[in-house]
Design a binder for these strands. Structure first.
Lengths: 134, 134
DNA sequence: TATAATTTGTGCGTATGTATA
DNA sequence: TTATACATACGCACAAATTAT
């Protein structure tokens, strides 16, 4: 799984792998991800490397870490995670009055706009969505 | 170049190829891309298929098309195109007062926030930036 | 000014494969 | 299984815009 000769840092390979598995729904929200020790065993990596991967995922909001308990996918996921295909373009703008009405977007919240490879644009309220690039 | 047996529609393969070549700077802004007829010759595709690929790129702002002249990379590119690495997360929010000052962001313009695979976040004014996923 | 060549815009019909009812 | 709908892809013809001769 982790390829030391690929040129990609090991912590990044592990983070990428975990991010993909979270996006695939391997762990339901609230469920515990493998512990640091377990990840060390499964991957053969050191603790520093494993922790660095998890730190990156925490910063991205992909996982939550609770001291003494473990790592989990955020429970009530207030943000929808949109997986952007290669060939997409992501922009942002303020919502139109129509979008404010249909999505019930609060004042001061921008929209995330994903223009797919087919040129079709989808807009999501910025307080409830984020785009994952896998 | 275009592989009919790949399962990916031919127009999408062509669009992806052209998008990558534009991002690589193969055509400087204002320069003319190959005409529809040329792309038909080079790829062996029909005109409908070639035009569909270009339509997708137009919708994404990757190219501009001028009737009777041709297709070009937008001249004065008012938006900065950020290429997002796999493993990144894209969100949006309104700028902080500090960002408004340093970037000179007009009222009502949100920020595009790219959190890299390393967990480091970069924010760009939404009216001057968009994220490409290659 | 006029003409021709090139290029994109638009509309038509046809065929094939795939997903859905 | 059949029928329907949709996406993809091809070919053709003509209109409109641009540029060079």
């Amino acid at each position: 799984m982790i390829d030391p000769a690929s040129g990609v840092p090991a912590w990044r390979q592990l983070a990428d792998d975990l991010r993909r598995r979270v996006a695939a729904g391997e762990w339901s929200p609230g469920a515990r991800l493998p512990s640091e020790s377990r990840l060390m065993q499964e991957t053969g990596l050191g603790r520093t490397t494993v922790r660095r991967a998890i730190a990156a995922l925490r910063a991205q909001g992909v996982v939550e870490v609770q001291h003494g308990w473990g790592t989990r996918v955020p429970q009530a996921r207030e943000v929808e995670r949109i997986v952007a295909e290669p060939g997409s373009v992501v922009t942002t703008r303020m919502p139109t009055p129509a979008e404010r009405a249909t999505f019930d977007v609060p004042d001061g919240v921008p929209m995330l706009v994903v223009i797919g490879p087919d040129g079709i644009a989808d807009a999501y309220p910025g307080d409830r969505a984020q785009v994952d690039i896998l």
